[in-house]
């Protein structure tokens, strides 16, 4: 069981000698095998929160546990898969060698982890095994980075706006594939996004954050059935959930009357 618990976590950064609070006392629970989304405006600390879970950063106060253990232990056991905003592939390595990188670091597959060849098929890149990243489109590069994140069969999968740079159509397709892969692997996934529709479509729970300082506004449970299908995007239930997230994001601004035009 790999649930993630964030317990009264605060993160301060020192900028020009001043202490700036990026995250202010956030507590969250991510159940084992769930898919959660973190959404909020820039400056709400959603990427910071993800980096705290991945042990890239350490919290200033509070505690994070992954399956009951601290993040650095989970990291050392190679239990964390991380997909960055840009694909972050090593440009001199082929698709195959980029996906195999974590295996080289861990010294081999973990348990009955998937083979790189299998993952290349899973993310739909058969025939591109020997291509270099520069020869691939942005969407294909991001598929490689997802395959790379999965090769050690991680217990948790952290996604930092993985499809933010892609066009709407490609992004929707990638999201469908990501959900399929997630359901096959059964990992606990956290997706950072700034797109309301994406958060609702992907997640079981959408955690809405506010900025300056980063704090939790509310959590919205998404009770849409799985597997999710594109047709759901047009249902009233989906719109209703989108509106709920929007209301949490914008608060009172939504209720305000538009200012009359001058003239």
């Amino acid at each position: 069981m790999t649930d993630i618990t964030i317990d009264h976590v605060t993160k301060n950064f020192a900028i020009d000698g001043r202490s700036v609070t990026a995250i202010d006392d956030i507590s969250l629970k991510f159940p084992s095998g769930s898919f959660s989304a973190l959404i909020g405006p820039s400056g709400c600390g959603k990427s910071t929160l993800l980096r705290l879970v991945a042990d890239i950063l350490a919290p200033s106060a509070g505690k994070i546990t992954i399956g009951g253990t601290p993040p650095d232990e989970a990291r050392r056991r190679h239990e964390i898969g991380f997909v960055f905003q840009d694909a972050s592939l090593l440009p001199w390595r082929s698709v195959m060698d980029n996906i195999a990188l974590p295996l080289e670091i861990a010294g081999g597959p973990i348990g009955d982890g998937p083979r790189p060849e299998t993952l290349i098929r899973l993310v739909g890149l058969s025939g591109f095994e020997n291509a270099k990243p520069a020869q691939l489109s942005g969407g294909m590069q991001q598929r490689v980075s997802i395959a790379r994140a999965l090769v050690l069969r991680p217990k948790i999968l952290l996604l930092d706006e993985p499809f933010g740079a892609l066009d709407e159509i490609t992004r929707q397709r990638m999201n469908m594939e990501l959900l399929r892969i997630w359901q096959e692997t059964g990992t606990t996934a956290i997706l950072v996004t700034h797109t309301i529709g994406e958060a609702v479509f992907m997640a079981d729970q959408v955690h809405v954050l506010a900025a300056h300082p980063g704090r939790l506004v509310t959590t919205i449970d998404v009770d849409l059935p799985r597997p999710r299908a594109l047709a759901m995007l047009q249902t009233p239930a989906f719109n209703h959930l989108e509106n709920a997230v929007r209301a949490a994001l914008f608060g009172d601004e939504l209720k305000a009357e538009p200012e009359p035009a001058h003239g």
């Binding site: 042990d55 890239i56 190679h78 960055f84 090593l90 974590p102 670091i105 861990a106």
Partner: peptide, 26 residues
């Protein structure tokens, strides 16, 4: 070295030497 590449190696649990050989040096 790109910051993301270093963060990636960190998350993967790579030590100083592997990070140096596989990322910083190339």
């Amino acid at each position: 070295t790109r910051k993301n590449a270093l963060e990636l190696m960190h998350v993967l649990g790579a030590g100083w030497f592997k990070t140096f050989i596989k990322v910083r040096l190339p």
